[in-house]
Amino acid sequence: MTITRVAVVAAVGIVAGSAFAVCSSPIASATPVPDGLYRLNFAGTEPSDFDYPEPRGPYTWLLAIRSACPAAGCVATATNVGGVSTTYVFRENGGRYISSQPQGFACGGKKTAGISTMSFTASGTSLSGELVESASPCQPISRSFTAVREDDLPSGVAVADPNSV
């Protein structure tokens, strides 16, 4: 499914007492992410957590993603598949989908409240992005990833309707 919203810019002028309109070419303003199951591939060269500085090695996540581009802007919703279920709501901003949510981390030897922010750009059925985890007073950890669409949305996995968030 490919949906592209377009914006048309028009100018109106008066020449020799008559009005005319000049229209420019359509400009693509947003593109939805194709719905489906995506495998996020992390290099694993970053620290595994704030209190565990050793890299964890390469790893993957599976995300089931749905998206829509209503008049208010593109939105993608996602749910991880396997493990503890987490729901993400990504809002498109300048071609980048961004989702932030509170999360607990181990920082400085104690449990600390922090923020997990995932963002990506989409190109067809491929994603490229990063996951940034922040918990004060520790330095943020940034993990880059690439992803490819592997399949349709899996049955039995609930992914929020992007038109209702």
Rank of each mutant, 00 (worst) to 15 (best):
M1L: 15
M1P: 14
T2I: 06
I3M: 14
T4M: 11
T4R: 14
V6A: 12
V6Q: 13
V6Y: 15
V8Q: 09
V8N: 09
V8E: 05
V9Y: 08
V9S: 14
A11C: 03
G13C: 13
G13Q: 14
I14C: 09
I14P: 03
V15M: 01
V15G: 01
S18Q: 15
F20P: 02
A21S: 14
A21L: 13
A21D: 06
V22N: 02
V22K: 01
V22G: 00
S24N: 15
S25G: 07
I27Q: 10
I27N: 02
T31E: 07
P32M: 09
P32S: 13
P34T: 10
P34F: 08
D35H: 06
D35Y: 01
L37N: 04
L37R: 02
Y38M: 01
N41M: 05
F42C: 03
G44F: 07
G44C: 09
T45L: 12
E46Y: 13
S48D: 06
D49P: 00
F50I: 13
D51A: 07
Y52T: 15
P55T: 11
R56M: 12
G57Y: 05
G57M: 05
P58G: 12
Y59K: 13
Y59C: 13
T60I: 07
W61P: 01
W61S: 04
A64V: 02
A64C: 08
A64I: 03
R66Y: 06
S67R: 01
A68H: 11
P70K: 09
P70L: 09
A72M: 08
V75G: 03
A76T: 00
T77N: 08
T79P: 01
V81F: 11
G83T: 07
G83M: 06
S85Y: 08
S85A: 15
V89R: 12
F90S: 10
R91A: 14
N93W: 02
R96P: 01
S99W: 09
Q101W: 02
Q103V: 07
Q103K: 11
F105S: 08
F105Q: 10
A106T: 15
A106C: 15
A106R: 15
C107F: 06
C107D: 10
C107W: 10
C107M: 09
G109D: 06
K110F: 08
T117Y: 03
M118G: 02
M118D: 04
M118V: 06
S119Q: 14
A122Q: 10
A122Y: 00
S123K: 11
G124W: 04
G124F: 04
G124D: 05
S126K: 02
S126Y: 00
L127F: 05
S128W: 05
S128L: 08
S128K: 11
L131P: 00
V132G: 05
V132S: 03
E133F: 12
S134Y: 10
S134Q: 15
P137C: 07
C138L: 04
Q139S: 15
Q139P: 14
Q139I: 13
I141A: 05
I141E: 01
S142W: 00
S142R: 10
R143F: 02
F145C: 04
T146L: 00
A147D: 04
V148M: 06
V148I: 07
V148H: 05
R149Y: 02
R149Q: 03
E150N: 05
D151I: 00
D151C: 01
D152G: 15
L153H: 01
S155D: 09
S155Y: 03
G156Y: 07
V157H: 08
V157F: 05
A158R: 04
A160W: 06
N163I: 12
S164R: 14
V165N: 07
V165Q: 13
